[in-house]
């Protein structure tokens, strides 16, 4: 029998590198945990993003916060929901078929909430009489706020489609409907307000990508 020796050239055509495209959904672990250990806080935040192109994602968060703040002179409870929508830009060049992210982005945020003034102290710097504490139990409902967020964060793939993420946010209040003879001291989604119109926040997320299709890198 004749022996054919064939020189088999290794096929140099590589398997094409692909990126996964799908919808990624997750939750904020910090707010989830805080609802257990902080008896003044109850809330959750669901995060999601959807890949549009190689580097751009449509992203958003939706959540609910009920928090009681016990300041020196005031004690109040804020209760409401919020939604934030925007885009993320992945600045990280992934090697091989890694799907990690280091990104920047922005959000437009909106919240609808109510505030209840539980108690307050009347400030008198003469200090002569004992400070009066008043319990008005006054509820202010139908409050709302709009703001912009600048986001910076990372998302790392732990294993198969599961991501751990961390982001920091700088917020700028656009407009808010203030209660009468009080103020918006905490806005769900925006967090604590300050004298100016800026605020800050973060989230710590665990999310999962539901793959829809793949595209060449």
């Amino acid at each position: 029998m004749p022996a054919f020796s064939q020189e088999q050239k290794t096929d140099t055509v590589q398997k094409p590198k692909t990126d996964k495209y799908g919808i990624r959904v997750g939750a904020d672990l910090y707010r989830f945990a805080r609802s257990f250990y902080d008896h003044d806080f109850q809330g959750f935040e669901i995060v999601a993003d959807y890949r549009l192109t190689k580097k751009i994602y449509a992203a958003g968060e939706i959540g609910n916060t009920k928090i009681t703040v016990n300041d020196d002179q005031l004690n109040f409870t804020t209760n409401g929901s919020y939604i934030k929508l925007g885009f993320d830009y992945n600045a990280y060049e992934n090697w091989l078929d890694m799907q990690n992210m280091i990104y920047i982005g922005f959000r437009y945020g909106f919240s609808s909430y109510s505030q209840t003034l539980n108690s307050y102290k009347i400030y008198d710097d003469s200090g002569y009489f004992e400070q009066t504490v008043v319990y008005p139990n006054q509820e202010y409902s139908g409050l709302s706020a709009h703001w912009l967020e600048f986001v910076g964060g990372i998302k790392a793939e732990l294993f198969n489609n599961l991501y751990l993420g961390f982001s920091v946010r700088l917020k700028a209040l656009i407009t808010d409907k203030k209660p009468d003879n009080f103020d918006n001291l905490y806005i769900p989604g925006f967090n604590r307000t300050y004298d100016g119109s800026f605020g800050a926040g973060f989230n710590y997320t665990l999310s999962y990508t539901i793959p829809l299709y793949k595209r060449a890198k």
């Binding site: 920091v168 700088l170 800050a200």
Partner: peptide
């Protein structure tokens, strides 16, 4: 982007430090 991220992180850590609000004299 790196500069932006660092600036953002700095700004956020500044704002996240809960300022002890005192009623100014």
């Amino acid at each position: 982007i790196t500069v932006f991220l660092l600036a953002l992180l700095t700004a956020v850590s500044f704002w996240s430090c809960e300022k002890d609000d005192i009623c100014a004299e």
